[in-house]
């Protein structure tokens, strides 16, 4: 499976990419929403996009709206990964088409748990 990590912070991209690769994802990166749309145009749809909210050029929210307008990308699972934790922001993102919301700070285990809920990562069998 392929994941697109969209964050203007190279630090945060590195952290999210490391967590996703540990779960078996191939990863692509973009530093803002418009760059992410360009990646999708060039590379085709991915299974998962992890999206920061506050970014220059095009915000994560604007990316979600734009991505949902393209029927070729309707199967992409969109997960916001952001410090924006107000209820109104979460509702706004989910209403625009995001599937899940992960608030920074997070651990790699928190990413795994969200992706298990979304059906993108299998649950581990307990010993």
């Amino acid at each position: 499976m392929r994941a697109l990590v969209i964050d203007d912070s190279r630090t945060m991209r590195r952290i999210v990419v490391a967590a996703l690769r540990a779960l078996g994802f191939e990863t692509l990166e973009a530093e803002h929403g418009q760059a992410a749309l360009d990646v999708l145009e060039e590379e085709g749809p991915v299974e998962l996009a992890c999206i920061d909210w506050n970014m220059p050029v095009m915000t994560g929210y604007e990316f979600v709206v734009a991505a949902r307008e393209n029927p070729d990308w309707r199967d992409i699972t969109l997960m916001m990964v952001t410090t924006e934790s107000e209820h109104s922001q979460i509702v706004k993102a989910l209403a625009a088409g995001a599937h899940e919301y992960l608030i920074k700070p997070f651990t790699p285990d928190a990413i795994r748990d969200k992706l298990q809920l979304l059906g993108l990562v299998e649950y581990e069998e307990s010993a």
Partner: peptide, 11 residues
């Protein structure tokens, strides 16, 4: 360092 401030500030 900016990202640390961003995450703390966001919370």
């Amino acid at each position: 360092v900016g990202e640390i401030a961003n995450v703390v500030g966001g919370n």
